[in-house]
Amino acid sequence: MEVVLKEIVIHVSHLTKFYGRLLALDHIDFDVKEGEIFGFLGPNGAGKTTTIRLLTGLSKPTDGNASILGFDINTEITEVKKRVGVVPEFSNLYDELSALDNLLFVAQLYGVPRLARRKKAEDLLKTFGLFERKDSPFRMFSHGMKRALTIAAALIHDPKIVFLDEPTVGLDVVAARSLRNLIGNLRQQGVTLFITTHYLEEADILCDRIAILVKGRIVKIDTPKALKAATEEESVIEFSFAELSSTLIHDISDKLPEAKLVVMDYNKVRIHGGMPGKIYDNVCQLIREKGIEIQSVNSIRPTLEDAFIKITGLSPTVMSIEKGGK
């Protein structure tokens, strides 16, 4: 096996943030290596944005520390800012400036030399497929184009690390896929990426390693493959019932103490672990006694979703709750 020693570019220790009395981040620790795509996966309110704000100097930690490219975020944040790019959760470029002018302004703020500015901006517009629209004001752009330009803006000063806060949230499937491709391509340029997301699938596709964050705590850090492997030995069977009541859930749990029940939907239940044959027999028997119909039974191949369920004990529906409870 080839061993490549990569440098640690983000080192976080005991990072903690209180908002008043609310503990948003609770002593988190992790390292990110050079060239890695590191995912921060967690439901809304887990503390993903807070982590990015702390690491990029928009907010101060209550406790703990982090160093980025060897610079301390508490004392050398300006050095950090020069070397990292940030794609905020909400695209906040200037509505009234054109795509090109937005990039040029950001380049000016970062001190990109005058001669390099225009070329760099135009190259980025080409990379992100926006060159034809370079003179259109930002406000005229579609949501996907706005996200793309916001990513371009984060790259204008050739940062070593780019932080992306939920880059594809709110995009349609096609736009999200094309943006993911663009993000994936950044890897070839040797940029280290720190991505937050509450889309399991996105984390699975893009990331080399994933930290699962729940209520301000990191509950697990591993590769998507290893996370999935952890669930591979156990079976997962999904039942859909005509109707699902809490008594039925209780009865099933009582019969199968060794298995774990997760309610997926208004009529779906997944049963993790245990012997598949026994589970099947038991559930069928119970159903017959109660006179409830089974609509479907599936054996589920473990996905990152299952790994997430197993690790966090949360139902995956918490992940599909968008901001504002939509």
Partner: peptide, 12 residues
């Protein structure tokens, strides 16, 4: 709009 926040992301 968060554009002031964007200014603060740069080394200023």
């Amino acid at each position: 709009l968060g554009s002031l926040e964007r200014l603060l992301l740069s080394p200023i």
